[in-house]
Amino acid sequence: MLTRLEPVFARLDREPERPAHLQTPRMSRHRVVLLAALLACYLAIVVAVLTTSWLVRLDWQIMFFRPYEQWPQLHAFLDYLVVLGQRGPTAVMVAAWLGWRSWRQHTLRPLITLGVALLLLNITVGSVKLGLGRLGPHYATQIGSAELFAGGDIFPSGHTANAVVTWGILAYLASTTVTRRVLSLFSAVVSLSVGATTVYLGTHWVSDVLLGWLAGLLIMLALPWFEPLIARTEAYVFELRELWRRRLEEGRLSAPVAAALTPLLSAGGKWQPGHSDDAAAVPVTASGAGAAGHSPALRPAGHPVARQHVIRSERTPVTPAGSRRPAHTERAAARGASARPAG
C-alpha cells in the first residue's frame, strides 16, 4: 500500500501550493480600537440584562410575538439552517477543508488556528453562560424577569458565536484580498441568519443573540495576539514528528506502534516549516550525510525513496544490442542435427 501511495506523496512534495505573498495578520491600531469598542458594547449588554432594562422588555415582547407562529411556513427550512451554528457539524466541515489546505500548503497553521479559536470560544462563552445561568424563553418562569442565575446556559447564544467564529476563520485564513472579502460576507450572512433563526424558533432571547455576535467578533479580532503561540505550536509538532521518525528509523518502537506510525511519518518529507526544495537534490554519502553536511530526511526501513520524475522527451533512448534469438541458419542446423539418427 505504501508503494502505491508513494507517487501521491512525492507529487505533493514536489508541488507545494503555499502562497508566497501570504502574511500573518497583525494587531493593528484600527483592530485594537474596534476590539475596545466591541468590548464596551459587550459589557453594556451584560449590564442591561443584569439591571432588567428596556432590552429585557424587548426580549419578552418578541417572545410573546412568537415568530414561529406568525410564519409557520419557514419552520421546516430554518430547522435545517440553524445547524450551520452547531459546534459539531460546522467544526467537522471546516476542519476537513482546512486539513486538506494544510496538506496542500505543507503547514499546520490553518488547523492550529481553528483549534485556538474554538478553545477561546469555549472558554469565554462557556464561562459567561455558566456564570450568569440564564434560562431560555421556553423555560422562563416569571414574566418581565431577566431569568438570571437560574441554572440555565443560554446567555450568550452559543449557536450565534460559533457561527461567527467557525465560518469567520475561513476569511481570517484567506490567501487573497478578494477571497477574504467574499468569505467575510459569507460568514456575516450565515451568522446573522443563524442568530435570527434562534430568535424565530424561540430558543434564544434577542439579547442572547446580540451578545453571541459580539462574543464571536471579539475572538476573531483578538486572534492576531495568538499568532506567536500558533507558530510555536506548529514548530513543536514538527519537532515531535521528527523525534518519532528517528525512533522509528532506529527501531526503538514496538511493532504495533511502528505499523501505525509508518504511513504518517513516512509521508510528506518536505512538510515542515522553512524547508527548501533544493534539499532534495543534496547527494547522500555512504555515511548517511549530504555533500554539505546536511542530514537527509529520515525514512523508515524498507520505505522506497521517491525517484525524480523524468518526462518522455528527456529519457535516454535505449537501442537493443541485438536479438537474443539465434539466426535462421543456426536454428536450421540445430533442427537438422536433432533429426539425424544416432550412430
Rank of each mutant, 00 (worst) to 15 (best):
D153K: 14
F155G: 07
T177H: 03
L173I: 01
W167D: 01
T160Q: 08
P156H: 01
I154Y: 15
I143E: 14
H138E: 09
G158E: 05
A161L: 13
P137W: 03
L170M: 01
I169D: 02
H138D: 02
S157E: 12
S145M: 06
H159N: 12
T160W: 05
A146V: 14
V165K: 04
H159W: 03
T177G: 00
A146S: 15
L148H: 10
G151I: 10
A163C: 00
A174W: 02
G151V: 07
G151K: 07
A150I: 05
T177L: 09
A146F: 13
H138R: 09
G144Q: 08
I143K: 11
I154R: 13
H159M: 07
G144I: 13
L173M: 03
I169A: 01
T141G: 13
T141S: 14
G168R: 08
G168L: 10
N162H: 09
L173Q: 06
V165S: 01
G151E: 02
Y172H: 05
T166F: 10
S175C: 04
S145Y: 07
G151W: 11
D153Y: 15
H159A: 13
H138I: 10
P137F: 05
I143F: 14
A150H: 12
V178P: 00
D153M: 15
A171C: 03
V164D: 04
T176F: 04
A161S: 12
T166A: 08
W167H: 03
P156R: 04
A161M: 08
A140D: 05
D153H: 15
Q142C: 14
G144P: 09
G144Y: 11
A174S: 11
I143M: 13
V165R: 04
